[in-house]
Amino acid sequence: MLFQGIVLATAGFCQLAAAAQAFQKVEFTNVGFNGSFTPVKSIKNPDKDSCSCTVDDAEWFTGSNAPISAGVSVHFRGPLTLHKFAFYNSSEFSIGDNRTSADWNRVAYYDASSQTADNVTFLTNAGTDSPVLGKALTFATSNGTGASSSASVLAENTLLSSDDEFSIFSNITCPKSGTGKSCGVYRSGITAYHGFSGVTKMFLFEFEMPTETQSNSSSFSYYDMPAIWLLNEHIPRTSQYPTDANCSCWASGCGEFDIFEVMNGTERNHLYSTFHTFQGIEDLGTGIQASGYISRDTSSTMKGGVVFDSQGNTVVFVSNSTTFNETITPETLNGLVENFSSDESYSTQLASISATLPSTTSKSNAFSLFEKRAGNLWFYFFTFITSVAHTLLI
């Protein structure tokens, strides 16, 4: 690599400064804007051909990392084996600034070898099938893809095959479905949990992405195309792959971020990072993709993740020095993500969007239920309160 690529994402196209090549760190700057999406208001006849959905009034978001600052679920597609997962919050963190940054606190953790699953719920789309909504979200069995009647922990060395998926949510159950409630409207009968929220957050992974051993055929949609990505938590609770766009907030821009994703069969060993938001673009499907990629190691374990700092910087990285400690200091994390030379890093600057939020419209500033901070007593007894409330609301 001869230089660091810089990309300015503008309406309708990206002006590339370098051809796609391998890096160890992929960064996005100026992340977050004032915008809105339309949440699902109702889902009628979910299990029938006549299923239909309506959308509610626009819900506005603003600030650094928006709309990914809202609650998100974490999704995995094979071929992939997950060894460790961790989610962190920080009250303040800026890339490269140790003086004003605070520690990172681990809020959720999974370790396959010890079968630890703290504030982690494994779900998968293996429930009732719908011609419009697809298969419903349900508890996953220990192999990650089967339907279970209760929560299970993903078994050690579980290997997802091509097309197979599971997701991770928190262990905080949703209240009854409904507009204006914390989980909004969601599909009836599903296993519904909150995702992971907070403006300043980090996801770390230890995983393998081996080459698919099965022969390719027309039965595969994503043959040998593994991925790890984030979705606005509302999406999987209504429908991840609907045939009616009104049955998900995805098409209106509620938010997706692909952390490590193989995009096509000709680049099976290239992991790209992409924002699927309307920050300066109109083609949500293509999204804002960094031209630089991270190499997929098909024979060894990979460690890395994504950091969303308080200033609108998003950093995706891989490093064997990645740790999963309960607390990570600013010095440790900055030492990790800043320890890449310019020819190992790729930066993409997102467009600046000017939009005025209407004062009479509902807003979302992604208040985090998980952050430890002064006055936020919810962090310490939210699980108890939501359990009681959930019982009363059912």
Rank of each mutant, 00 (worst) to 15 (best):
F3L: 09
A17N: 13
A22Y: 01
Q24P: 00
V26M: 04
V26W: 00
V31E: 01
F33R: 00
F33S: 00
N34M: 03
T38W: 00
V40H: 02
D47H: 09
K48D: 12
K48R: 12
D49F: 10
C53A: 07
D57Y: 08
W60Q: 01
F61N: 03
T62I: 07
T62R: 11
G63I: 05
S64C: 10
I68E: 06
G71F: 07
V74H: 02
V74T: 08
P79W: 02
T81A: 10
A86E: 02
E92F: 14
E92H: 15
G96E: 07
D97N: 15
R99F: 13
T100I: 08
A102F: 07
A117Y: 08
T128M: 08
V132A: 03
A136N: 06
A136M: 12
L137C: 05
S142Y: 08
A151G: 05
D164P: 01
I172W: 11
T173P: 11
P175E: 11
P175G: 14
S177P: 05
G178V: 03
K181Q: 14
G184E: 05
Y186K: 04
S188K: 14
H194G: 11
G195F: 05
S197R: 02
T200A: 06
M209D: 06
P210W: 07
T211C: 03
T213F: 03
Q214L: 13
N216R: 13
S218T: 15
S221H: 12
N232Q: 11
R237T: 02
T238S: 10
S239Q: 09
P242C: 10
T243V: 13
A245W: 04
N246P: 06
C247D: 04
G253L: 03
E256T: 05
F257A: 04
F260L: 13
F260R: 05
N264P: 01
T266M: 08
E267N: 14
T277C: 02
F278N: 01
D283C: 00
G285Y: 03
S291A: 13
S295H: 05
S300L: 08
S300V: 03
T301I: 15
G304S: 07
S310N: 06
V315I: 14
V318H: 01
N325T: 12
I328D: 01
V337P: 01
S342T: 14
S342G: 11
D343Y: 09
E344F: 05
L350V: 00
L350R: 00
A351M: 12
S354E: 14
P358M: 10
S359C: 11
F367P: 06
L369D: 12
F370H: 13
E371M: 12
L377G: 13
W378I: 06
Y380W: 15
Y380R: 10
F382D: 12
S387I: 07
V388C: 12
V388L: 15
A389W: 10
